[in-house]
Amino acid sequence: MKGLNIHVIEKRYDDVVVLADVDITIADGEFVAIVGPSGVGKTTLLSMVAGLDADYTGAIRYDGTPLAAPGQSPSGLGMVFQEPRLMPWLTVGENVRLAEAERLTRDRSYVSCADRLLDEVGLRASRDAWPHQLSGGMQRRTALARAFVVEPWLLLMDEPFVSLDPLAADQLRELLRRLCARVRPLVLFVTHNLNEALVLADRILFLGDTPARVVLDYRVEPTDSHDLDSPEIAALSRQLQARHRGLLSEMAGSNPDESWRRKEGV
């Protein structure tokens, strides 16, 4: 089987089955958004792919071979968490280079691309700053630089742009799009914002039900709109929600943008 195959027979926390019968196959370079109500197991799924959670039955394979040894993370992985998760005692540059440490010990002739990445995310001038001196948006840029410095073939993102002001979030999405266009990783992007998923992804997987499974596998028609609030995206979102009313009603409630729109009657 080609590509990344995530097959979860069962994942439980104590007595509660959170995920069951999940079987997803994703092609190289595909940008997949994972959408679903909070607590459905989106983050759990990412942790399993990242090798941070090995306590489940099933298998995660790439081109038919296991992605990584049990309890280990796959090589060539980039990951962006909900919080920036920078080491506060390392400078911005050192934080980015931390992701290169493995490569550096493996390959003595390897030259760090941290500076280039910092250039790309517009943080060249902050290279020697401490993380706490940066704004929330800049901290996330650093986390992005750290994820892309390893030239990842697989990129996992767990609601990376929440709790940012809309402008900063827009800029970060634009930056992500640019970096992805260059590196072309396979992306799993967890979000609870349907519009964000529509703007970024080639394909959206909706998780739902208890225990959670993929309730809808939706291929996004490519649009030129990069604006979360553009009429085009709004129409797409409305269309999708009209067609799958039962399935997405829960979603809309958990999406602050949507509830705002309903109240205002837009």
């Binding site: 090589s75 992985l77 919080e83 050192e94 931390l98």
Partner: peptide, 20 residues
């Protein structure tokens, strides 16, 4: 959470000890 970052990027043991 910071240990998870070190694991995800497969930071070698000694570097993990000194920097994380």
């Amino acid at each position: 959470r910071l240990l998870a970052v070190a694991q995800v990027y497969r930071v070698p043991r000694t570097v993990r000890l000194w920097r994380v």
